[in-house]
C-alpha cells in the first residue's frame, strides 16, 4: 500500500519528508531486540519508544515509517535523524491496538 494512504487515518505526519514509499506490512513492538529480530523491509512500525535508537532500527530494516502511538511524541534528535534519512514519522492519539484497527480498516 502506498504510504500516503495512511494519512486518510487520524494520524499526524511529524516530519517533512517525501511520502513515496510502500507499506508492505505492519509491526507492533516496544522491545527493540524483538523488533530487531522480527522486522522486515517495508514495515510500518507502531511503538511508544521515541528515542533516537528507534531510527537506527528503522534504518537497519528499511522500514517504511514509524507511527508513535498514544501521543508518544518523539525526541527532537529522533525527528532530526529521521528527516535526514527520509524516514516518515507519524503520531497517533490512539494506542497500538486502536491504531492497528484503523490500519486494518484501511485494507491491511
Amino acid at each position: 500500500m502506498d504510504i500516503q494512504n495512511i494519512l486518510r487515518l487520524p494520524l499526524q505526519l511529524i516530519n517533512e519528508v517525501p511520502l513515496n514509499g510502500q507499506v508492505e506490512d505492519i509491526y507492533i513492538g516496544d522491545l527493540l531486540s524483538v523488533v530487531m529480530a522480527s522486522g522486515k523491509e517495508g514495515m510500518l512500525w507502531l511503538t511508544v519508544q521515541k528515542h533516537l535508537n528507534v531510527i537506527a532500527i528503522a534504518q537497519l530494516h528499511d522500514f517504511a515509517g514509524i507511527v508513535f502511538v498514544q501521543d508518544s511524541y518523539p525526541d527532537e534528535d529522533t525527528i532530526q535523524k529521521a528527516t535526514e534519512l527520509q524516514i516518515p514519522l507519524f503520531l497517533s492519539h490512539k494506542d497500538a491496538f486502536g491504531t492497528a484497527k484503523d490500519l486494518i480498516g484501511l485494507g491491511f
Partner: peptide, 15 residues
C-alpha cells in the same frame, strides 16, 4: 525503559 534488555541479544546473534 528505552526498550532494551529483552534478553534476546545473544539469542538473535546466534540465530
Amino acid at each position: 525503559s528505552l526498550g532494551f534488555g529483552a534478553g534476546m541479544g545473544l539469542v538473535n546473534m546466534k540465530s
